[in-house]
Design a protein around this nucleic acid. Structure first.
Lengths: 202, 202
DNA sequence: ACAACTTATGTCATACTATGACACATGACA
DNA sequence: TGTCATGTGTCATAGTATGACATAAGTTGT
């Protein structure tokens, strides 16, 4: 890895951390891109070269989670009940969180506190989730041999899985560490599994 | 109703229809508030006096639907299984759609076409849905006699219901009329009901 | 080590959404 | 009809986001 990429990685993390800290200190809306860029000593224009939008800061983990889930999904046999595959994908994300570095864990907790303080961000997280859902619905429909446009079961499988993950992550735990978050996420998945009738997704 | 309120209602509808038509003609992002206001011959500032944001145009029915659902929910006995109550609330929304005026039906269809053309709006719809979920989760938790902060079942009940409605509404039907939309929504609710194990939400 | 190339950054400029302040006009009501 | 309340237009402003272009930094050849 060249010096250039190292520097970029460093700037990206610096922007991320500066943004999260400012958001928690003064609130999300009250914090401007100019301020964030100021802390890291880059121009506001540069911020947008690292993050497409301000919202992409609190949604930092979304893309990563989506990638993990898709990897797990494609590794599963195609004739497995689709919700079983999706539940495994969700658990893989939980696993990833547990296995992440101390630095990343800190960011997880900050983002979670941020979502609690700013409910509008929960909405934006759901918005990103909707985009994720489209991707997965398409894949599930493919595996089911159906048309994604009309296969409501495929969509339901996905929204149940994604919604469950959201409930587990967002549903607040009073001042918890990362383990208590992953525990709650795991609990949510189990609850959903038990709520569903076996074979509903065939 | 005074002349003043009539005029307001008229302006509001004019803005709504002008916006929807422009969105469908030239795309959502490509349409500016200035253009919308121009069609109705009001100042851009006035637009924001009728709609808090541009996004509130495609989300026109959200608040209405939320109100309907909450009315139904509070009319149900408190010891009814919560998902049963929520499913009834969703069906009430479907009923409202079927019973709406020709004018409103047209808007429904336009909004749906808009959501198909612009997936980002589906996300924003989900974002609004997240806010709705908070309200209902609180009420469900109250009825269950639990703390909304820790009662994951309450949250799951709500997200399943709201997600199901979204799937039914957004899942595209090829050039359908309003009846085919409500039919699909009804189908989605039924699918979810059959997918869930009776008593899971007690 | 130096030149040539690639890529990241800073500095403009600009469009658009959204909000506050204030003056003016229009409908409501005595 | 005069007074009050309310809606509207105009102006000013903050902030997000994007494009264009020049410059500086890192990379790669000889």
């Amino acid at each position: 890895m060249g010096l250039r990429e190292l520097k970029k990685e460093k700037t990206r993390n610096a922007l991320l951390d500066a943004a999260l800290d400012l958001f928690l200190e003064q609130g999300y809306d009250a914090t401007t891109i100019e301020q964030i860029a100021g802390v890291v000593d880059v121009s506001p224009r540069t911020f947008f070269r690292y993050f497409p939008s301000k919202d992409d800061i609190p949604l930092h983990f979304h893309d990563q989670g989506e990638e993990t889930m898709m990897q797990v999904l494609t590794s599963r046999p195609e004739d497995e009940p689709p919700f079983t595959s999706m539940a495994l994908a969700v658990r893989a994300v939980i696993q990833d969180m547990s296995a992440s570095t101390e630095e990343e864990r800190g960011r997880f907790l900050k983002i979670r506190r941020l979502l609690e303080l700013n409910p509008a961000l929960v909405g934006k997280s759901a918005a990103r989730g909707a985009a994720t859902e489209r991707v997965f619905a398409k894949e599930i429909a493919r595996r089911r041999g159906t048309d994604v446009l009309t296969d409501q079961v495929a969509h339901l499988v996905v929204v149940f899985a994604v919604s469950t993950m959201r409930v587990g992550f967002e549903c607040p735990t009073p001042e918890g560490d990362l383990a208590s978050i992953t525990d709650r996420m795991e609990a949510a998945v189990t609850l959903t599994e038990n709520a569903l009738r076996p074979g509903w997704d065939l």
